[in-house]
Design a protein around this nucleic acid. Sequence first.
DNA 1: ATGTTC
Length: 442
Amino acid sequence: MTFYKFPVEENMNCPVYLFASKEIYAEIEKTALNQLLNASTLPGVEVVVGMPDLHQGYGLPIGGVMAAARNGPISPGAVGFDINCGVRLLKTGLKASDLKDKNIILRRLQQAIPAGVGEGSNLNFSEREFKEILANGVSKLIEAGYVSRKAAANCEDNGNFKEADPDTVSSQAISRGIEQLNTLGSGNHFVELQEVASVSDSDELEEGDLMVMVHTGSRGFGHQVATDYIDLAKKTRDKYGLSFPTNNLAFFPWDSKEGRNYLGAMGAAANFAYANRTFLTESIKRVFTELYPDSYIELFYDHTHNIAREEKHVVNGKEMDLLVHRKGATRLASGGKALIPGSMGTGSYVVKSADSENTRLSLNSTAHGAGRKMSRTQAKKSISRQDHMRSLGDVEVVSAGKNILDESPLAYKDITEVISSLQISDLAYPVAQLKPLLCIKG
DNA sequence: ATGTTC
């Protein structure tokens, strides 16, 4: 069994494919699977796919892909609250063995990176400049001289989501976001120092290389955009004569003004997140330059796992224009690579596309991480501090949050099983494995 | 994920 197919029945508009090994499938909650099946009942949905890190989310499960045809839905809930949550991997020019005092760099990074819920930034922007960043992302940062041209290379969308439109964003989102560029956030967001543990198929990485991985998104800005447009979708339901299988999957019609405005606002949040990860990279660069003058910080790759984008795919032998909503799922183009972080204290991976029949069935998608095994509440209740500390091994972790048991590796699926599941399903294969050394959690 | 129950 390389994947599961749920045939069209009852109100479903298309079959649902779940790419998971038998072991992984057994761990997936019924609620997550039901959410995935539910997505196929939206009128105009052509393809629904689940990744092996599937777990319960808001409307669409995390690890879910929902593609709408030209007459289909635009659903802000199917992208989720952290628009352009994503991962980037940085090269440092150092070997892990060059690290002199782990404690010093950990503390310096912690000082340099504002982290935690509601934590503001050390940067100041006028509203006009902030809106230019929303409109043009990393391109604006380059133009303004904040970063070098290299900042856009190796970044998905070149760090500039073309359809972004700051005029479709509420003033509340602007006021929340303007003070949050260059901040890490909370929850599963992190900055981690990693060592390349093994390389099987990559000429860009070498065993022993010291890398930095960053996982964060669009903070309160994207959250406000999502909130605004989910509310609007609920309000415009009757105007367009729609019915929703669940309010969490409230949607706009493809050609509606409100739907197009959402895509503009979503794009602005995408650019916020690209800019946020770019500014964080500058902060990291300053710490490295101060402590290790011979180091450099260079972007290896950056991509999102929460976004909707228009893409062409062949479905049932026919080429179609689709709006592909991915939530906790990464686009992995044929011949391309992707980053798959594990939970803190466990390994992360660089994978390449298997370029198979199944990668096409999945609309060129891959997993975004280990995926939760337990809800946050369940984790805080059932994981002891002792077991959590033991699960971290010798990885040093500092965190802004006081209780991060809900982020314990014990609350997540085993990343190696997710990776092997991707291989079994013929979606992707690992080309490099990264071992965590130090971790700064939000 | 989130000015963590506007």
